[in-house]
Computed example of a mutant assay.
Amino acid sequence: MRIDKILNNNAIVVKEGNKEKIVMGCGLAFKKKVGDEVPEDKVDKTFLLSNKDISNKFQELVSDIPMEYIELAERIIVLAKTQLGKKLNESIYLSLVDHIYTAVKRYLEGVEVKNALLWEIKRFYKEEYPIGLKALDMIEEEFKVRLPDDEAGFIALHIVNSQMDGNDKEIKRTYKITKVIQEISNIVKYNFKITFNEDSVYYYRFISHLKFFADRLFTEKTFNDENNDDLFEIIKNKYKSSYECVEKISKFINEKYDYTVSDEEKLYLTIHIERVVYKTTK
């Protein structure tokens, strides 16, 4: 294994074909130079990121951030993949490493950032938020600092973002998506004067649908299929109260976000609202 680039004493870049691998180990590059051989038994961690841009940015982070933060972030990412059973976008290696390092540094400096949507994150991301809490335990074990639960919410959002093919710059969009989910679910709740059963599979499906609806809103990807015109008319007449609620949502979204909700989106919103309201009131 020959050194192609030295990032710091503990991290180097090696070539594997036309791809770069980031290799880490204690003192791996100490008194070494580009072109030198490094024994593989000194390697603790290897990162092979397929996206060239993400790999370059990750190399920058590795150069600036202590190795223990990168190793901890990787353990949290492995935990998230295992718990969720889902593939996460490579960008999470950037966003999570940077966030954990910044959060710990900020906490030690006495600066605390409040998460205005913490309550909503707990409600809407019931799989990701517990991973955020477990991450706080892991951070405490590693660095002997207990970050506030607000940080568990932020970590959960990074995990949510990585499931939606978001990159490290789009966490603000995920924050906005959470806000839209809150707004729409409140319209439904107050329209039907109900309290959702948040443990229901129908509520989970409803929130999942809102998540992707809001994602389209901010990426301006309209979901439209004229083949469902007949079905839309049937659903509209069959579930009148749910459709009327969808019209309220559509009006709100148009006025606040300047986004026109398509008939296709109205169709699926009506179906999800009907299911979640029927199961809640039943």
Score class of each variant (00 low, 15 high):
Trp119Pro: 00
Leu96Arg: 03
Ile54Asn: 15
Thr178Met: 09
Leu136Gln: 10
Ile76Glu: 03
His158Asp: 14
Leu147Ala: 10
Met138Gln: 04
Glu128Ser: 11
Glu90Phe: 13
Phe143Gly: 12
Thr82Met: 10
Leu84Met: 06
Leu94Pro: 00
Ala103Asn: 01
Ala152Asn: 02
Glu141Thr: 06
Glu128Ala: 13
Ile139Arg: 00
Val180Asp: 00
Tyr129Cys: 11
Ala135Glu: 02
Glu128His: 15
Pro148Ile: 10
His99Tyr: 14
Leu72Ala: 08
Lys81Cys: 05
Gly153Glu: 02
Lys105Ala: 08
Met138Glu: 09
Phe143Tyr: 14
Arg106Val: 01
Thr82Gln: 07
Met164Thr: 03
Tyr93Val: 02
Lys81Ser: 14
Ser55Ala: 11
Ile77Asp: 06
Ala116Val: 07
Ala156Asp: 08
Leu96Glu: 00
Lys172Trp: 04
Asn167Ser: 06
Gln59Gly: 10
Asn56Gln: 11
Val111Arg: 14
Ile177Lys: 09
Phe124Thr: 14
His158Ala: 15
Lys122Ile: 13
Glu141Asn: 15
Ser55Glu: 09
Glu170Ser: 15
Glu128Trp: 05
Glu109Asp: 14
Gly110Val: 00
Glu90Asp: 13
Val113Glu: 07
Ala103Pro: 01
Thr178Lys: 03
Gly85Leu: 04
Pro148Phe: 13
Ile155Phe: 02
Gly132Phe: 01
Lys176Cys: 05
Arg146Thr: 07
Pro148Tyr: 13
Gln59Thr: 08
Met138Tyr: 09
Ile65Pro: 05
Lys87Ala: 08
Ile92Glu: 02
Gly132Pro: 01
Leu108Thr: 04
Ala80Val: 07
Lys179Tyr: 08
Met138His: 03
Ala156Val: 05
Pro66Glu: 15
Glu112Met: 13
Asp150Glu: 13
Phe154Cys: 05
Asp165Cys: 01
Ile92Tyr: 12
Gln59Lys: 13
Ile54Asp: 07
Ala156Thr: 08
Lys179Asp: 09
